[in-house]
Design a binder for these strands. Sequence first.
DNA 1: CCTTTGTGCAACCGTTTGGTTGCAGTAGCC
DNA 2: GGCTACTGCAACCAAACGGTTGCACAAAGG
Lengths: 104, 104
Amino acid sequence: MTAPRNSDAVFAALSDPTRRAVLQGIASTGDATATELASQLPVSRQAVVKHLGLLGTAGLVTAQRHGREVRYQITAEPLNEAVAWIAQLGALWDERLARLEKLF
Amino acid sequence: MTAPRNSDAVFAALSDPTRRAVLQGIASTGDATATELASQLPVSRQAVVKHLGLLGTAGLVTAQRHGREVRYQITAEPLNEAVAWIAQLGALWDERLARLEKLF
DNA sequence: CCTTTGTGCAACCGTTTGGTTGCAGTAGCC
DNA sequence: GGCTACTGCAACCAAACGGTTGCACAAAGG
Protein backbone atom coordinates (compact mmCIF):
# COMPACT_ATOMS: atom_id res chain seq x y z
CA MET A 1 0.00 0.00 0.00
CA THR A 2 2.16 2.71 1.35
CA ALA A 3 4.52 3.28 -1.53
CA PRO A 4 6.00 1.50 -4.51
CA ARG A 5 8.76 3.73 -5.84
CA ASN A 6 9.93 5.64 -2.81
CA SER A 7 13.33 4.01 -2.56
CA ASP A 8 14.33 7.27 -4.18
CA ALA A 9 13.12 9.12 -1.12
CA VAL A 10 14.79 6.66 1.22
CA PHE A 11 18.19 6.97 -0.40
CA ALA A 12 17.84 10.73 -0.54
CA ALA A 13 16.91 10.78 3.12
CA LEU A 14 19.90 8.68 4.10
CA SER A 15 22.32 10.74 2.06
CA ASP A 16 22.78 13.44 4.66
CA PRO A 17 25.01 12.83 7.69
CA THR A 18 22.95 15.03 9.98
CA ARG A 19 19.86 13.13 8.95
CA ARG A 20 21.52 9.82 9.73
CA ALA A 21 22.57 11.24 13.09
CA VAL A 22 18.95 12.21 13.71
CA LEU A 23 17.86 8.67 12.93
CA GLN A 24 20.46 7.25 15.28
CA GLY A 25 19.40 9.72 17.92
CA ILE A 26 15.82 8.56 17.71
CA ALA A 27 16.77 4.91 17.54
CA SER A 28 18.96 5.05 20.62
CA THR A 29 16.29 6.68 22.73
CA GLY A 30 13.28 4.99 21.25
CA ASP A 31 11.67 8.31 20.53
CA ALA A 32 12.59 11.95 20.73
CA THR A 33 11.40 15.47 20.06
CA ALA A 34 13.00 17.87 17.63
CA THR A 35 14.30 20.03 20.46
CA GLU A 36 15.86 17.05 22.21
CA LEU A 37 17.59 15.98 19.04
CA ALA A 38 18.80 19.48 18.29
CA SER A 39 20.35 19.82 21.74
CA GLN A 40 22.36 16.74 20.94
CA LEU A 41 23.48 17.90 17.51
CA PRO A 42 25.46 20.84 16.15
CA VAL A 43 22.47 22.34 14.36
CA SER A 44 19.42 24.36 15.25
CA ARG A 45 16.03 22.92 16.09
CA GLN A 46 14.61 24.25 12.87
CA ALA A 47 17.20 22.36 10.88
CA VAL A 48 16.25 19.19 12.73
CA VAL A 49 12.58 19.87 12.07
CA LYS A 50 13.29 20.10 8.35
CA HIS A 51 15.21 16.86 8.44
CA LEU A 52 12.40 15.19 10.33
CA GLY A 53 10.01 16.42 7.67
CA LEU A 54 12.08 14.80 4.97
CA LEU A 55 12.47 11.61 6.95
CA GLY A 56 8.74 11.67 7.45
CA THR A 57 7.89 11.88 3.77
CA ALA A 58 10.38 9.09 3.16
CA GLY A 59 8.35 7.06 5.62
CA LEU A 60 11.31 6.53 7.91
CA VAL A 61 9.83 8.39 10.83
CA THR A 62 6.40 8.97 12.32
CA ALA A 63 5.28 11.80 14.54
CA GLN A 64 3.06 11.53 17.55
CA ARG A 65 1.74 14.47 19.47
CA HIS A 66 1.69 14.33 23.26
CA GLY A 67 0.28 17.52 24.64
CA ARG A 68 2.49 20.28 23.42
CA GLU A 69 5.41 18.17 22.34
CA VAL A 70 5.81 16.01 19.27
CA ARG A 71 7.70 12.77 19.66
CA TYR A 72 9.21 11.04 16.65
CA GLN A 73 9.75 7.35 16.22
CA ILE A 74 11.38 5.22 13.58
CA THR A 75 9.60 3.15 10.99
CA ALA A 76 12.13 0.64 9.82
CA GLU A 77 10.39 -0.98 6.86
CA PRO A 78 11.35 1.55 4.19
CA LEU A 79 14.95 0.70 4.92
CA ASN A 80 14.25 -2.69 3.44
CA GLU A 81 13.70 -1.09 0.07
CA ALA A 82 17.14 0.46 0.17
CA VAL A 83 18.75 -2.79 1.19
CA ALA A 84 16.74 -4.60 -1.48
CA TRP A 85 18.02 -2.23 -4.15
CA ILE A 86 21.59 -2.78 -3.05
CA ALA A 87 21.07 -6.52 -2.94
CA GLN A 88 19.62 -6.48 -6.43
CA LEU A 89 22.63 -4.58 -7.70
CA GLY A 90 24.91 -7.07 -6.01
CA ALA A 91 22.97 -9.90 -7.59
CA LEU A 92 23.28 -8.42 -11.07
CA TRP A 93 26.95 -7.94 -10.55
CA ASP A 94 27.59 -11.39 -9.13
CA GLU A 95 25.65 -12.98 -11.95
CA ARG A 96 27.90 -11.20 -14.39
CA LEU A 97 30.95 -12.30 -12.49
CA ALA A 98 29.75 -15.88 -12.48
CA ARG A 99 29.03 -15.78 -16.19
CA LEU A 100 32.50 -14.44 -16.81
CA GLU A 101 34.14 -17.14 -14.77
CA LYS A 102 32.31 -19.81 -16.70
CA LEU A 103 34.26 -18.78 -19.76
CA PHE A 104 37.48 -19.99 -18.18
CA MET B 1 42.22 -1.92 4.36
CA THR B 2 40.46 0.18 1.84
CA ALA B 3 38.51 2.67 3.92
CA PRO B 4 37.06 3.18 7.36
CA ARG B 5 34.74 6.19 7.31
CA ASN B 6 33.64 6.50 3.71
CA SER B 7 30.13 5.27 4.27
CA ASP B 8 29.39 8.97 3.95
CA ALA B 9 30.66 8.88 0.40
CA VAL B 10 28.77 5.69 -0.35
CA PHE B 11 25.45 7.06 0.82
CA ALA B 12 26.07 10.30 -1.01
CA ALA B 13 26.91 8.36 -4.15
CA LEU B 14 23.75 6.29 -3.92
CA SER B 15 21.53 9.27 -3.28
CA ASP B 16 21.19 10.28 -6.92
CA PRO B 17 18.82 8.33 -9.21
CA THR B 18 20.97 8.88 -12.28
CA ARG B 19 23.95 7.57 -10.39
CA ARG B 20 22.06 4.47 -9.37
CA ALA B 21 21.02 4.01 -12.98
CA VAL B 22 24.66 4.27 -13.97
CA LEU B 23 25.54 1.57 -11.46
CA GLN B 24 22.79 -0.67 -12.76
CA GLY B 25 23.94 -0.01 -16.30
CA ILE B 26 27.43 -1.15 -15.48
CA ALA B 27 26.25 -4.10 -13.45
CA SER B 28 23.99 -5.41 -16.18
CA THR B 29 26.71 -5.30 -18.80
CA GLY B 30 29.64 -6.20 -16.62
CA ASP B 31 31.48 -3.11 -17.71
CA ALA B 32 30.79 -0.04 -19.79
CA THR B 33 32.22 3.24 -21.04
CA ALA B 34 30.85 6.65 -20.20
CA THR B 35 29.64 7.11 -23.77
CA GLU B 36 27.83 3.78 -23.73
CA LEU B 37 26.12 4.62 -20.49
CA ALA B 38 25.16 8.08 -21.67
CA SER B 39 23.53 6.69 -24.82
CA GLN B 40 21.36 4.62 -22.54
CA LEU B 41 20.41 7.46 -20.23
CA PRO B 42 18.67 10.82 -20.60
CA VAL B 43 21.80 12.81 -19.81
CA SER B 44 24.93 13.87 -21.60
CA ARG B 45 28.19 11.96 -21.55
CA GLN B 46 29.79 14.66 -19.45
CA ALA B 47 27.16 14.26 -16.80
CA VAL B 48 27.85 10.53 -16.73
CA VAL B 49 31.56 11.20 -16.48
CA LYS B 50 30.98 13.36 -13.44
CA HIS B 51 28.86 10.68 -11.85
CA LEU B 52 31.49 8.08 -12.56
CA GLY B 53 34.03 10.33 -10.90
CA LEU B 54 31.95 10.50 -7.78
CA LEU B 55 31.29 6.79 -7.81
CA GLY B 56 35.01 6.30 -8.23
CA THR B 57 35.96 8.33 -5.18
CA ALA B 58 33.31 6.46 -3.24
CA GLY B 59 35.13 3.30 -4.27
CA LEU B 60 32.08 1.88 -5.98
CA VAL B 61 33.58 1.85 -9.43
CA THR B 62 37.00 1.33 -10.96
CA ALA B 63 38.24 2.52 -14.32
CA GLN B 64 40.35 0.56 -16.74
CA ARG B 65 41.81 1.98 -19.91
CA HIS B 66 41.73 -0.13 -23.06
CA GLY B 67 43.33 1.79 -25.86
CA ARG B 68 41.33 4.91 -26.34
CA GLU B 69 38.33 3.92 -24.33
CA VAL B 70 37.87 3.69 -20.57
CA ARG B 71 35.75 0.88 -19.23
CA TYR B 72 34.21 1.06 -15.79
CA GLN B 73 33.45 -1.84 -13.48
CA ILE B 74 31.75 -2.17 -10.15
CA THR B 75 33.46 -2.73 -6.84
CA ALA B 76 30.79 -4.06 -4.56
CA GLU B 77 32.49 -4.04 -1.17
CA PRO B 78 31.80 -0.43 -0.20
CA LEU B 79 28.13 -1.28 -0.43
CA ASN B 80 28.61 -3.43 2.62
CA GLU B 81 29.34 -0.36 4.69
CA ALA B 82 26.03 1.14 3.74
CA VAL B 83 24.17 -2.04 4.52
CA ALA B 84 26.10 -2.34 7.78
CA TRP B 85 25.04 1.14 8.80
CA ILE B 86 21.41 0.35 8.07
CA ALA B 87 21.66 -2.93 9.93
CA GLN B 88 23.17 -1.19 12.92
CA LEU B 89 20.31 1.29 12.96
CA GLY B 90 17.85 -1.56 12.75
CA ALA B 91 19.61 -3.26 15.62
CA LEU B 92 19.43 -0.17 17.80
CA TRP B 93 15.80 0.19 17.02
CA ASP B 94 14.92 -3.42 17.61
CA GLU B 95 16.79 -3.42 20.88
CA ARG B 96 14.70 -0.47 21.99
CA LEU B 97 11.55 -2.21 20.87
CA ALA B 98 12.50 -5.32 22.80
CA ARG B 99 13.28 -3.33 25.92
CA LEU B 100 9.92 -1.63 25.63
CA GLU B 101 8.06 -4.87 25.29
CA LYS B 102 9.72 -6.24 28.40
CA LEU B 103 7.92 -3.60 30.39
CA PHE B 104 4.56 -5.19 29.63
C1' DC C 1 -3.64 35.47 34.41
C1' DC C 2 0.88 35.47 33.09
C1' DT C 3 5.16 33.26 32.24
C1' DT C 4 7.44 29.57 30.35
C1' DT C 5 8.47 26.13 27.06
C1' DG C 6 7.92 23.88 23.05
C1' DT C 7 6.18 23.77 18.21
C1' DG C 8 5.00 25.86 13.36
C1' DC C 9 5.65 28.93 9.57
C1' DA C 10 8.24 31.75 6.47
C1' DA C 11 11.80 34.43 4.57
C1' DC C 12 16.36 34.51 3.52
C1' DC C 13 21.32 33.09 2.36
C1' DG C 14 25.60 30.76 0.79
C1' DT C 15 27.12 26.52 -1.12
C1' DT C 16 26.64 22.36 -3.43
C1' DT C 17 24.83 19.72 -7.12
C1' DG C 18 23.35 17.93 -11.49
C1' DG C 19 23.48 19.32 -15.74
C1' DT C 20 24.91 21.65 -20.08
C1' DT C 21 28.05 23.37 -23.89
C1' DG C 22 32.44 24.10 -26.09
C1' DC C 23 36.94 22.90 -27.11
C1' DA C 24 41.45 20.57 -26.82
C1' DG C 25 43.88 16.22 -26.81
C1' DT C 26 44.78 11.44 -28.09
C1' DA C 27 44.34 6.77 -29.88
C1' DG C 28 42.61 3.93 -34.14
C1' DC C 29 41.95 3.21 -38.73
C1' DC C 30 41.77 3.86 -43.80
C1' DG D 1 49.16 11.56 -43.01
C1' DG D 2 44.56 12.65 -42.15
C1' DC D 3 39.91 11.64 -40.79
C1' DT D 4 37.18 9.71 -37.06
C1' DA D 5 35.73 8.58 -32.51
C1' DC D 6 36.36 8.71 -27.80
C1' DT D 7 38.09 10.93 -23.54
C1' DG D 8 39.49 15.13 -20.52
C1' DC D 9 39.15 19.78 -18.87
C1' DA D 10 36.83 24.02 -17.84
C1' DA D 11 33.41 27.45 -17.58
C1' DC D 12 28.95 28.33 -16.74
C1' DC D 13 23.94 28.02 -15.01
C1' DA D 14 19.66 27.11 -12.57
C1' DA D 15 17.77 24.65 -8.95
C1' DA D 16 18.01 22.22 -4.69
C1' DC D 17 19.95 21.84 -0.11
C1' DG D 18 21.28 22.59 4.58
C1' DG D 19 21.15 25.92 7.57
C1' DT D 20 19.92 30.24 10.06
C1' DT D 21 16.99 33.88 12.23
C1' DG D 22 12.68 35.95 13.60
C1' DC D 23 8.19 35.74 15.04
C1' DA D 24 3.53 33.92 15.92
C1' DC D 25 0.94 30.36 18.29
C1' DA D 26 -0.44 26.78 21.73
C1' DA D 27 -0.17 24.06 25.92
C1' DA D 28 1.53 23.58 31.01
C1' DG D 29 2.37 25.41 35.50
C1' DG D 30 2.97 28.80 39.09
